[in-house]
Structures are given as C-alpha cells and as structure tokens.
Design a protein around this nucleic acid. Sequence first.
DNA 1: CGACTTCCCTGGCCGC
DNA 2: TGCGGCCAGGGAAGTC
Length: 287
Amino acid sequence: MPELPEVQTVVNHLARQIKGKVFSDCQIKVAKMVSPKKFKVLIKNSKVSNVLRRAKMIVIELAGGQYLIVHLKMTGQLVYVNRRGQAAGGGHPIKSADFAITRPNKFTRIILNFADGSRLLFHDIRKFGWLKLVDRAELAAISRRLGVEPLSKNFTLKKFQDILERRPNLKIKQLLLLQELIAGIGNIYADESLFMARINPGRQAKSLTSAEIRRLRSTIISKLKEAIAFGGTSVNTFVSSSGRRGHFVEKLKVYQRSGQKCYRCQSILTKTVIGGRGTVYCSHCQK
DNA sequence: CGACTTCCCTGGCCGC
DNA sequence: TGCGGCCAGGGAAGTC
C-alpha cells in the first residue's frame, strides 16, 4: 500500500535514473489502466525532464508540457530496469536473479521502453493502479482536488486546525485518510501517527484538544519523514523502483501488530474497523 | 453539502 | 487436494 513515503522513495530513485531519457515504444497489456486512448502515440519520443510526487502519485514531467501520472494504488510497482535487465539502484545494479520483478511477469500490466534500451515495468496484481498522460492544466485540476501536502510548509498548525473544524463529525482516522483534506497519508501512517500522538483513532475530530491537534500534526510529520529515511514500508508488495524493500516495516508500532503487546504499556493491541479500514491501536494508552 | 455504501481486482487464507 | 467464501483496501462513484 504505497503511501507518501513509499511514493517519495520511488520518486527519489526514478529522478536519479530516468531524467533525460526518451520514451520510445510501450506495451499496454491492460488497456483500462492507461489513458487517454492516444497514450502510446503521445508518449513516444517524449523526454523526461523531472520526476515529482503529488499526494500518492508519481508525476513524471516530460519536455513539451506533458505529465505522465502514475498511481500505484494497492499493489502497484514501478520498476526501473537498465539495458542489461538489472534493477539499478543509485548506480549499483541489484542481482536480477533475486527479483522476478526485473522481468515482465504475469502481473506486468504496462512496459514503457526508453530509447536507450532501459525500461520501466509497471506490475500490479490487482489492477487498481493506473497511468495517465495529461497536460499542465489537467495536472493542475487533479492537484486542486487534493489537500495539503503534509511535509510542505503549507501544513501549518492553523491549516490542520481548519481541516479538523471543517469535518468536526468525522472520526480522526477517517479524516487523516481523506486525500481531499490532507494528501498522502494512508492506513499505515494514520495508525502510526495516532499511536505516537496517543489519540484513539475513533475519536471525532471536534473532540481533540488543541494540545492533541498540535501533537498529532507533529507526529504525522515526523512519522512520514522517518519512513522516507528508511525507504518506506514493505508490508507485502511494495518495492522501490530499484527493486529494494523499505525498512520502515521494522519500525512499525501498531500497524499489522494486532494481538501483540503495545511497546509503550505492554497491553494487547486492539484491531477494529474504522471507515471500512482495518485499524490497530492501543486502547490503554490511546485515549 | 456531508456521511455512508458499493465497487473495482486478485492472491492468500480459512474451513470443510 | 480442491473449492467456495471471504478479506485486504485507495479512491471513484453512487445513494441517502
């Protein structure tokens, strides 16, 4: 489940590898995952000028005012493979034998070839992910529908307070997951931030005290930053575009630890469902 | 408008 | 061993 830190990890790596490369032909194995219909023609001969992130989307900026947006959704992987067929990480090729992902497999949905023989493989077990080629105006329209970037200077305490005031009746965890309010947080970092802030995920937004709001804002920021430093979290299918797994999984305090002991108070962690999402928290120290 | 529900999709897991 | 049923879940779309 790539969230902000995982997508940022992919973007950081791709930016080092594909800037300046020119797309040539591509193979689209699942048509519904790509738009517009003219994708194949439009992307041909486009040169990558930059790679950015917005919310949980990878934005590959192309010379000529086009943008290739990639959303990994739940199980997507965007893997960069050099011309020798190796997943290359920061100039150090990784043994491809260790990674079936460096070759097209049954889950490969799209293959984007570069003119130099290297390529991007887009694998996605569940086919929830997508690629979209847009112009500047369309990108701006998509971005406008998304909320504040939590690691930007715009995510001020005032901004966070405003967001909570706008949706007073939502459970705080549901609020954190709404991309139109704050962009980039998913199930892992919602649970982890709430644990660190010692706030029960089922609390209504309006019930948070100003001290709790301040605390939650800073735990969101620190958790996301920490996860980026560890290359993200690989709980099931996530790998960076270098084929590497993220190591934040070893730092998780509650996510996927249901039934285990709370690291803070040794109580057994509770699993529940909030807004249709599995939620793990400590009922003893998250009030 | 906000809040809630359904749907997409497939592998993995459970019980029989 | 095989198989049906169910679950995970980001986010769009539909309903109330």
